[in-house]
Write a protein that binds this DNA or RNA. Structure first.
Lengths: 217, 217
DNA sequence: TCCATTCGAGAACACTGTTCGCGAACACCG
DNA sequence: CGGTGTTCGCGAACAGTGTTCTCGAATGGA
């Protein structure tokens, strides 16, 4: 099997008929479509239609739909604007998470990709490099630093997903209301009895606490 | 729109032709299929074939495939064997995570469902009730306790997913090796130069640190 | 000019989730 | 016993999906 990731299969030399489009162009079309109609709308046919071509043509640029999804993830990761590493590590990592959250809220389909598929391409590797640079002076081992990166990504995506779904959570609370009405589950009832009065912890506070727990003060 | 979750739509009264199967039977067939061939193999036609019926028949028990996925998640959550709440909260929560991890390793399709869809049914609500009971004496607010539950679930699922994908991560490391060979990314190179010598932090240690960071000592 | 090589894309294949409609099966009622 | 109301089973169909095959068209280098 050739386990070559998308990012290593490069364009052939200048021989033969030149391509009318680029991989970046296909990726951009897919992102635009996902932004507009969600990840489920990103089918090969619809992306191709977005470009005014046939579905089969996309396979000249991409091996599969999954490849295209990986390209989309990494392309969005190009949007980070990170300062030079330096200074205390916690604020630096929080800034990474803040920007990650902003990117995910702008592209509502991203959290799902980040959570279920963990492929990092060039921009993802650059982000990881930045995090490791920020933690360069930290005494923790490499394993724990890599884990901190994974936890940061996962939690940022999960919290962003919660924010995005906050509107359409009627189904959820409908059933929870029923559970409360049933009488059992005293603690659940107490926790939710405040209605919307339950103060949701703020994003940065949560991430901050988790990172401090993981890496020490 | 009737935003009624699956768990509220109950069987009608004893009038009319009786059903030949039960919702639990359909759920069990779907779980068996997913255990054997993965979540992608769980199509309405294949689940129906597992039961020896036609695909359309399943819609007598379930409104959609998504409903069936929610039923599968909650059914697995019935597998928790939780002791009576009491004693210090940290070991009690760690026990929950340990069992969650075991369930997810046994059902490799579960992490994806837990991460992307957060519907909790009867057993999920029971689990949340247990966690809240364990934290009953804890001074944190309800919002933070609910968040702790979400973080526990998310992190357990994400770490289990990593373990499950550890074998087929050749693609990933192939590209990272290329990135290292490229010369840039000094910190990434240093972090991974140990090869397999990088000690992966242990599951319980990670979860423990995160929970302590979130909820205090 | 020729040609190896690449690209574009229509057609086809094997699927998918879901709906419609009809015949069959049952519980109840007179 | 014969309806009758209601539900169930499910074949057929619809609108899509990812992917492969194939072949004509386009190109740069010789």
């Amino acid at each position: 099997m050739d386990a070559v990731p998308v990012w290593l299969r490069e364009r052939r030399t200048g021989v033969g008929r030149p391509a009318e489009r680029s991989r970046a162009e296909v990726t951009a079309a897919a992102i635009a479509l996902a932004d507009r109609e969600g990840l489920a709308a990103v089918s090969m046919r619809r992306v191709a239609a977005e470009l005014g071509t046939g579905a089969a043509s996309l396979y000249r640029y991409v091996d599969s739909r999954d490849d295209l999804l990986d390209l989309m993830s990494d392309e969005v990761a190009a949007g980070y604007r990170l300062p030079e590493p330096g200074g205390p590590w916690l604020p630096a990592l929080l800034e990474v998470c803040r920007q990650g959250r902003a990117l995910m809220l702008r592209h509502g389909w991203l959290p799902e990709l980040v959570l279920t598929r963990s492929a990092l391409g060039p921009h993802g590797a650059g982000l990881l490099e930045h995090v490791l640079a920020v933690l360069a002076a930290h005494p923790a081992g490499a394993g724990r630093k890599l884990e901190a990166f994974a936890v940061m990504s996962t939690l940022t995506a999960a919290l962003a997903l919660n924010e995005l779904n906050a509107g359409s959570a009627a189904r959820q609370s409908a059933y929870l209301a029923h559970v409360i009405a049933a009488g059992r589950h005293a603690h659940l009832t107490a926790a939710l009895s405040g209605g919307a009065l339950v103060p949701a912890p703020r994003f940065e506070d949560t991430i901050s606490r988790v990172l401090v727990g993981l890496l020490g003060e």
